[in-house]
Design a protein around this nucleic acid. Structure first.
Ligand code: FES
Ligand code: FES
Lengths: 144, 144
DNA sequence: TCAATAAAAGATAAAAAAGTCTTTTATTGT
DNA sequence: ACAATAAAAGACTTTTTTATCTTTTATTGA
């Protein structure tokens, strides 16, 4: 569904958001621990998220990453996915045809179009705030 | 969604099925041409499909692959997917947690579970016959 | 029986994804 | 100013996926 990189990115964002809810800035080590990701690789991913203005990064002592509450209420999961995996999941053919089109449909076009629309809706409507609260409340988990 | 290998496999099966509908056995070259896949790689994929009894293979002159009409009415797309990609798509967590479980749900568990169920239903209920007819009738396509 | 045909099997190769290590840059508090 | 901290940037390595090439095995029909 998503690349490993994208999975890490989504989890990292949710974790950062949940910590930002209690005014805590988190470092790469914290993140890697919280989402069970390799530390150095997580650093690379954070660079992309930071460049795409999905998270705010602060260098130096007491630095780290954060997502202001106002921002996390705006940022959709779709933005994270697009930053990491591009928009393949939103528009490409499930059987890998060069382009998905009703005019030249693959044998599963109708069914896939429905599923893709569901995925798109989920990602385009869910904000980081939406998912961060469940984590903060201990209702959902990012590892195990 | 699926690996490239799996996409080729699904398309190959659909093509073979559609040709079997008109009593035509097809070779690797035909298949590779019909689904725009690399020929040698397609051969490898056919080995797996053949070993998993998803297609029948015949060596020698006039040999090739076929799927008897009775068989294609039984074979579900899910069998093809399982043979190539395993059952990850049917059961694993969308965010990559070691296992998907309601007891230890990731923040997107409920939404993913729904989408996964839809995908599963599609793959478990659609037979090769179902999709082969659309192709045979020129309503659907495997390339472009 | 033997030449031609076509898939199976095996050994590599190339490309992409995932992951690591080292150096640089920015920030902070003393 | 400067030592310590932490992310950014860059160069690399490893693993997995995708793809190719060669050899072997089975089948056919002349
Ligand atoms: S053409 Fe394949 S999903 Fe639309
Ligand atoms: S735990 Fe993630 S989808 Fe179920």
């Amino acid at each position: 569904m998503f690349s490993k990189t994208c999975e890490y990115a989504i989890k990292a964002c949710i974790y950062i958001a949940s910590q930002s809810l209690v005014q805590k800035r988190v470092g790469i080590k914290d993140i890697a621990q919280a989402i069970e990701s390799p530390e150095a690789f997580t650093g690379k991913i954070m660079q992309v998220l930071s460049k795409n203005h999905i998270v705010d990064s602060v260098k130096g002592p007491h630095g780290g990453f954060e997502i202001p509450e106002s921002a996390m209420k705006e940022k959709k999961l779709a933005e994270v996915v697009r930053a990491m995996d591009g928009d393949d999941i939103f528009k490409s053919c499930g059987l890998g045809l060069k382009e998905c089109s009703g005019a030249n449909p693959c044998p599963l076009h109708r069914q896939f179009a429905k599923i893709r629309a569901d995925i798109t809706k989920l990602l385009e409507t869910t904000t980081l705030f939406d998912v961060a609260t469940g984590l903060a409340d201990g209702l959902t988990f990012l590892k195990r």
